[in-house]
């Protein structure tokens, strides 16, 4: 009976498992192996030698270092601002009663719109001569900024776009979190003499901790993997003179541009390791902090 049930369950799962196996598991294992290909003939699929050469190459490659640096700057630029901003907007949306559904939808639109379409609109917004961004800055007497064509401003432009794009998702999750906090806690806190700010610090934030933790992990992972936005925003480039080159973009370049599968796989695994370590650290911290 047990065996029969298991067999039946396996039969149902088989189509899904097959797809996951072919498109997820196999590439993962293959690329892991590929990262150790030291001498490889890809026309005939023969490996002459395995080794750490690809990792040593990355260790010495200035471009890879730049990609790592850019990725960290991107993560640091996007994640905190995105979280604070979306929490703030979620609090506002939670407190208004009229039109709140409408605003929720408005904020969620960027999330469901194609990255390419969004990025094309932002290319126009960031345009140095005709863009609306410079027009607004001009109203405050700020000189036009070369958002997409200068090496200093390419990364900020990318960060602004990504924050804006991620907002909707974070807001929806924060709103869901806020709705689980019972009114009675706020009432109790008011009776205990807590003003608006104290109620935020001592009731909202601690009760929202699991939500914030979830959003932080998702945001960090997503930000480490940024690629589409760059590709579309800079028209298939990684920004002027690689100023917006991130690790995934580096992997893409190595793979499709230079056909260097070994180095591309090795870089992908370095990124995987970084994300893995970050996530472990966060789980460790949350275990200590979120305890109820």
């Amino acid at each position: 009976m047990k065996l029969k049930d298991t067999a039946k369950a396996f039969l149902y799962l088989f189509p899904a498992l097959l797809i996951i196996g072919v498109f997820v598991i196999y590439p993962m294992i293959k690329s892991f192996l590929m990262s150790f290909y030291a001498d490889y003939d890809f026309f005939n699929d023969v490996v002459y030698r395995y080794g750490l050469d690809n990792f040593i190459y990355l260790w010495n490659d200035e471009v890879f270092h730049q990609a790592l640096r850019n990725t960290f700057i991107f993560v640091l630029g996007v994640v905190p601002i995105s979280i604070i901003l979306s929490l703030w907007i979620a609090l506002m949306l939670n407190s208004i009663t009229v039109l709140s559904k409408f605003f929720r939808t408005v904020y969620f639109i960027p999330f469901v719109t194609s990255v390419v379409a969004v990025s094309i609109v932002w290319r126009w917004i960031f345009h140095s001569n005709y863009g609306i961004m410079n027009y607004f800055l001009g109203l405050f007497g700020i000189d036009p900024i070369q958002w997409l064509t200068s090496t200093e401003w390419a990364m900020p432009a990318l960060i602004i776009l990504s924050i804006w794009k991620g907002l909707g998702y974070n807001i929806i999750i924060f709103l869901a979190g806020l709705q689980t906090i019972g009114d009675s806690y706020y009432n109790a806190a008011r009776i205990d003499g807590a003003n608006r700010w104290s109620r935020f610090i001592h009731v909202t934030l601690p009760q929202l901790a699991p939500t914030t933790f979830f959003i932080t992990i998702i945001s960090i992972i997503n930000s480490f993997k940024v690629f589409d936005e760059i590709y579309a925003l800079f028209d298939g480039q990684a920004g002027p003179s690689n100023s917006a080159l991130t690790v995934v973009y580096y992997v893409f370049n190595k793979f499709y541009g230079e056909w260097d599968f070994g180095v591309a796989s090795a870089a992908a695994y370095v990124l995987f390791l970084i994300i893995f370590i970050f996530t472990l650290i966060q789980f460790y911290i949350s275990k200590k902090k979120i305890t109820y």
């Binding site: 019972g182 009675s184 009432n187 109790a188 806190a189 009776i191 205990d192 001592h202 601690p206 109820y292």
Partner: peptide
Amino acid sequence: IGMVFQNYALYPHMTVLQNIMFPLKM
């Protein structure tokens, strides 16, 4: 005033001591 709610509304992330101290802290 002091008030006890129907569902008590104790702050779940604080210990008993922190709960009792909260009004004083405020």
